[in-house]
């Protein structure tokens, strides 16, 4: 069978589908001071997965606010700088109007994913940290 670390080189999704891959990629991003990109990406997936059960609405609102505050509000943050202004105002609008939707972070997540696919992921595959691991 193909060793996991070779699969990681196939696509960003193969990398993010593996615990060890995530761990190594995050260590690399941390060195580059941009681990927030990965944390945000997972936070968006986790947010979408939250089930709509009773009592969850309050939790969702709290979580949406927390994601907004941590990654988007500070315009100097690594995540905020990579998200289009229109996308940021859409999310802000959702939070301000308490209009919480499971898909409210989807566009922002896509933008961060594209950035990782074009930038940090290929650099990771050429990094010492990955090469030493393999």
């Amino acid at each position: 069978p193909t060793p996991p670390y070779l699969k990681w080189a196939e696509s960003l999704h193969s990398l993010l589908d593996d615990q060890d891959g995530i761990h190594l990629f995050r260590t690399f991003l941390k060195q580059e001071d941009c681990a927030d990109l990965l944390d945000f990406w997972f936070a968006c997936s986790g947010f979408r997965k939250l089930e709509t059960s009773e009592g969850n609405e309050e939790k969702k609102l709290k979580l949406a606010k927390a994601i907004y505050k941590k990654y988007i509000l500070d315009s100097n943050g690594i995540v905020s700088r990579q998200i289009k202004p229109a996308t940021k105002s859409f999310i802000k609008d959702c939070v301000v109007r308490l209009h919480i939707d499971p898909a409210m972070f989807d566009q922002a997540q896509t933008e961060i994913q594209t950035m990782m696919e074009e930038n940090t992921y290929p650099v990771f595959l050429k990094s010492d940290i990955y090469l030493e691991y393999t």
Binding site: L16, D17, D18, F42, A43, G46, A66, I67, K70
Partner: peptide, 20 residues
């Protein structure tokens, strides 16, 4: 009640793949 950071951390962890 969970603090915002705890909530965020749990959310991030919940989206990660489970142990092989």
């Amino acid at each position: 009640l969970d603090s915002e950071d705890d909530l965020l951390q749990k959310c991030i962890t919940s989206a990660m793949p489970k142990q092989r």
